[in-house]
Design a protein around this nucleic acid. Structure first.
Lengths: 205, 205
DNA sequence: GTCTATACGCTGATAGAC
DNA sequence: GTCTATCAGCGTATAGAC
């Protein structure tokens, strides 16, 4: 295979990433419907015609991003599970990781895209299924075992684990939303959020 | 003034309410841009021409709803302030009230519309200003005095009050989002959320 | 691979009949 | 007050030049 073809493939992948990265920003801030291909093209600094050279449609770009976001969010839970420590320590590590990605990185875009994909009727049902089709594959459900483990060890309050997981992710999503609307908004430390789960500590006077 | 004119006024108001109520649902689920006038008309069971008889534009309908939502959310904070009790009790009452409106009533639509108005670049800047123009008038800032009061009384943890208020509303917004995407999702009790704020209780063995 | 020019459909908004 | 018919503008997606 001649060198040129390899080079072309590299360009192809680079352009695709460039477009996806730009699209993530635009989708996160405007929503799947309001985001225009021309917005994405402008953000990526290329013509809108070229976007269609790399992706079939606006929807396909969105789906690609939703998949990516879903994978990443589950990956974090799995890493947390391998983390060496008590369930509360696992959750703390996970929360710190997520908060950091919201505060600094591209993470926030991915969270906002997942929120849109799952909450808006404007996105086609097939897209929503990517995220919800398999409940077992959602971060909420992946987190439940850690919570149950913590309850068995007496570290975590004896509430419905589903309720606790829902509450936890409500928090995360809510913070992502706040951050996008108010750039300098102070984010809480992971410890503060852990208060929701933890059984009351005994305080020595 | 003849009877007919009064009757007409009644119809006018009723229709307006009918349209606003339908619009709230549609906007909440699809977002301001993706929501079509025809969607709203269908939901309200009247022609799209008639919608324009009562409102100048789609944007005006949206603005009206954002104002309404903003007023209501601040009203709750004010009521909480008048509630007789300690700061934590005030916040607990407020949280219960909000959670109830999310669980059962139209409240959830209003919260989702506020979220969209404040987070999406797709809504015109003027609309966002309705909500954010006067920081002093936002629920977040209205809640801060209660938090400070609680800190002075040693009931609430000594963290940056702004951070605590942001965290609190992140929670509320996150729960509204969860509820819309999963109708049967279990909502936490107010008490659980209060754990975030409260100084650790002493537990007697 | 990359761009510009163009077609087609959809939706917000208006006009005018009833 | 209420509806239907219609226009104008915009945005996705395509075709074809370079």
């Amino acid at each position: 295979m001649p060198r040129d073809e390899n080079k072309n493939l590299e360009i192809r992948d680079a352009r695709k990433e460039q477009i996806l990265s730009a699209a993530a920003k635009v989708f996160a801030r405007r929503g799947m419907v309001a985001a225009k291909i021309s917005d994405i093209a402008k953000e990526a600094q290329l013509s809108h015609g070229l976007v269609y050279h790399y992706f079939e449609s606006k929807e396909q770009i969105f789906v690609t991003l939703v998949k990516k976001a879903s994978d990443k969010s589950i990956e974090v839970v799995n890493e947390a599970n391998q983390y060496n420590g008590t369930p509360i320590q696992k959750l703390t590590w996970m929360t710190e990781t997520i908060l950091r990605s919201i505060a600094t990185g591209e993470g926030i875009y991915l969270y906002l895209i997942m929120i849109q994909a799952s909450t808006s009727d404007a996105v086609p049902a097939e897209v929503r299924d990517v995220l919800m089709g398999d409940n077992a594959n959602s971060p909420v459900f992946a987190t439940i075992p850690i919570i149950i483990e913590g309850q068995n060890e007496g570290e975590i309050v004896k509430e419905d684990p589903v309720k606790l997981a829902v509450t936890y992710y409500a928090f995360i999503q809510g913070l992502a939303i706040n951050k996008i609307q108010w750039k300098e908004c102070p984010l809480p430390e992971a410890k503060l959020i852990m208060n929701v789960f933890q059984t009351k500590q005994e305080v020595t006077k």
